[in-house]
Design a protein around this nucleic acid. Structure first.
Length: 613
RNA sequence: GUCCCCGUAGCUCAGGUGGAUAGAGCGUCGGAUUCCUAAUCCGAAGGCCACAGGUUCGAGUCCUGUCGGGGACACCA
């Protein structure tokens, strides 16, 4: 679902509020449907068995079932589902796990749809389901369509995901890419899991780097007016992307700022520069399929007096005091180091190694001082906050978490706050690292990457590694058409399904659930995998790890291709079997459902499900 | 010196918040295609889960320490 972007400064505007409410009601409408999935149904059966044991006195009243899980065993030969209930509850029951397991298994075996319940190993209970249960799940997938997998675990919780937040001083480059994709996919996952999600971008338009931008733009402006500016001076932004900005400003403003004193033009060029850089960044993000709901401006934050309000509150509660900053702990302290008295935030109370200044000695706010106020603002409008940061900012996590904890707990509304650190990506070409020099203005932009390999490849590849691990991005490998390339492999599986359905349609065969009982064990393997999709979504949402969906889709594609290949040697196992109308239609029904799950998963990742390759 | 992330097959990486015999791809070796997309599939070999302790019924997973790789340590942003 794409929403139009709102360039608002802070707080929730009415349009956003409406969207949130609207989405919430959608989520509620979905609830009854998603609760019908196979896993939730059988989890309910397990819980009911346990409740019976409580009623019979085998388990003490009030026993918590919170740690009881029901999941597919790693080894499929153990059965369809396994529960650890007996091991988790043995202590409470004051019996051995296996003895308790026998009691639970006896209850479960009495259930419809459970063919057998066996006690195994240290006390696992392995369930074998009646095939009809899986066939029923297949129908559920078909009935729910693109909504299959949507969860309600997040309903009622509004999550603000802040990602990208690149400085508005130039186009987006590689360094921003991974965080942008991971943040966006995470927002999608959370939304699919039922959360109300706001995708936010923090514009750092108040710091010194914006003055640098303004000066650089002014020079390009003079250049556009015919002046020979020579090489860009050290300390200004040399990139060509400011050339058109200078030209546009020359057209729009004429030459009245050409020889004016800096104080006169600086504010104008700051504002113009930031606005144009944000346009550039938004168009870069659009190339990746990313659109934020909210753009929060640091300058607006200052204008609204938010940092002052935060400081006042923190001082009142003794989280901020005037103190002398310790010298930097690095090996070589700066030569011009002087002890200065500054307003410090007591981040040491929260595990930081030193208290951090919120204001500089000239009285202006530090980045941290403003950021603290910014997070306070976000916390007012959300139940949970997530920031996606580059790993190079790891050193500042403790202080900002400390600040959010102090503010939100102090104000009586603790807001869970998670900072996801995204490790660097090493670009590779022909096995060699791609060198980038930011100083010369030569760096690989996101636009370059998308143009070279495509949005889908960039997005999917960025999600094939857990974000806290460093990764390489090899231009040659990511466009390879083979099983070694997960993007291609998953899309291939989807295209194969589409191709099969097209072929069938030409022969007058449509998917049908009229004879699903003709599907055998090989097909049920596929259904089992597909049935895990809702669980994968929930797990990915809980862990805030969208990459799990990418790996899941790869597994599902593997199962699909494996089944497809069965037909090479066993023609009776093809999707389309000559003169076997009923079984063909049942298999086509299966194929369509698998395609649907692949599509839903890819949509969450923001990757297109292609129909032909 | 302090802090953060990582260390799993020859290589690149998963491992569902503590579960059963450790999982994939590439590479190596051996097989499968008159046929719905073989750009695919099946099988085999390959492991002190960096190391040492600890926590408990049970640890690749949690805790402590050591080693190795990466990153950060300004009143910058």
């Amino acid at each position: 679902m794409r929403r139009s972007s709102h360039d608002r400064r802070h707080g929730l505007d009415p349009a956003t509020r409406f969207l949130l409410l609207h989405r919430e009601s959608n989520a509620k409408a979905q609830r009854s449907m998603s609760d019908q999935t196979l896993y939730t149904a059988f989890a309910a059966k397990v819980e009911s068995a346990l409740s019976q044991l409580v009623a019979e006195g085998a388990l003490p009243a009030g026993t918590s079932f919170a740690n009881v899980t029901l999941e597919p065993p790693r080894d499929p030969s153990h059965g369809d589902l396994a529960t650890n209930a007996a091991m988790v509850l043995a202590k409470a029951a004051k019996t051995k796990p296996r003895d308790l397991a026998k009691k639970i298994a006896a209850k479960l075996e009495a259930e419809d749809d459970i063919a057998s319940a066996e006690v195994a190993g240290p006390g696992f209970i392995n369930l074998r389901l009646d095939p009809a249960a899986w066939l029923g799940e297949l129908k559920t997938i078909d009935a729910l369509g693109d909504e299959y997998g949507r969860s309600t675990i997040g309903s009622g919780t509004a999550v603000n995901v802040e990602y990208v937040s690149a400085n508005p001083t130039g186009p987006m480059h590689m360094g921003h890419c991974r965080g942008a994709v991971v943040g966006d996919a995470l927002a999608n996952v959370l939304e699919f899991a039922g959360h109300d999600v706001v995708r936010e971008y923090y514009i750092n338009d108040a710091g010194g780097q914006v003055d640098t931008l303004a000066r650089s733009a002014h020079l390009r402006y003079r250049e556009a007016l015919g002046e020979n500016i020579g090489a860009m001076p050290e300390g200004l932004y040399p990139g060509d992307y400011l050339v058109p900005v200078g030209e546009a400003l020359a057209r729009e403003l004429g030459d009245r700022f050409k020889d004016a004193p800096e104080a006169e033009w600086l504010p104008v060029f700051r504002a113009e520069g930031v606005a144009r850089m944000m346009d550039l960044i938004k168009s870069d993000l659009a190339l990746l399929g990313i659109e934020h709901d909210t753009f929060a401006s640091e300058a607006a934050l200052h204008a609204a007096g938010k940092p002052d309000a935060a400081e006042a509150w923190l001082r009142e509660h003794d989280f901020v005091y005037d103190g002398v900053l310790e010298p930097p702990k690095g090996k070589a302290p700066p030569e011009d180091w002087e002890p200065v008295k500054l307003p410090l935030f007591r981040s040491t109370k929260f595990g930081d190694d030193q208290d951090r200044p919120i204001k500089k000695s000239d009285g202006s706010w530090t980045y941290f001082g403003a950021d603290l106020a910014y997070h306070m603002q976000k916390a007012e409008n959300a139940d949970e906050l997530i920031d996606i940061w580059g790993a190079d900012h790891a050193g500042t996590v403790k202080r900002i978490k400390a600040a959010v904890a102090a503010l939100s707990e102090g104000k009586g509304k603790p807001v869970p706050f998670d900072v996801k650190l995204i490790q660097m990506v090493q670009l590779m070409r022909d096995g060699e690292p791609v060198k980038m020099s930011k100083r010369s203005g030569n760096f690989i932009t996101i636009a370059d990457m998308v143009e070279e390999v495509g949005k889908d490849v960039v997005r999917f590849t960025m999600l094939t590694r857990k974000p806290e691990a460093q990764m390489e991005f090899d231009f040659a490998k990511v466009v390879e058409a083979s099983k070694d390339n997960p993007v291609w492999y998953v899309q291939y599986a989807h295209a194969r399904i589409c191709s099969t359905l097209r072929k069938a349609a030409e022969e007058g065969l449509e998917p049908s659930d009229a004879a699903l009982d003709q599907l055998g064990e090989e097909e049920i393997v596929l259904i089992r995998r597909a049935a895990q999709f809702p669980r994968e979504i929930e797990a990915a949402a809980k862990a805030r790890e969208p990459h799990r969906i990418a790996f899941y889709l790869y597994d599902l594609a593997t199962d699909l291709n494996a089944f497809y290949s069965l037909g090479n040697t066993r023609t009776e196992k093809r999707f389309i079997v000559a003169h076997e109308r009923e079984v063909s239609q049942a298999r086509l029904f299966l194929a369509r459902a698998i395609g649907q799950v692949l599509r839903a998963g890819l949509r969450v990742l923001g990757v297109e499900a292609v129909e032909r390759m």
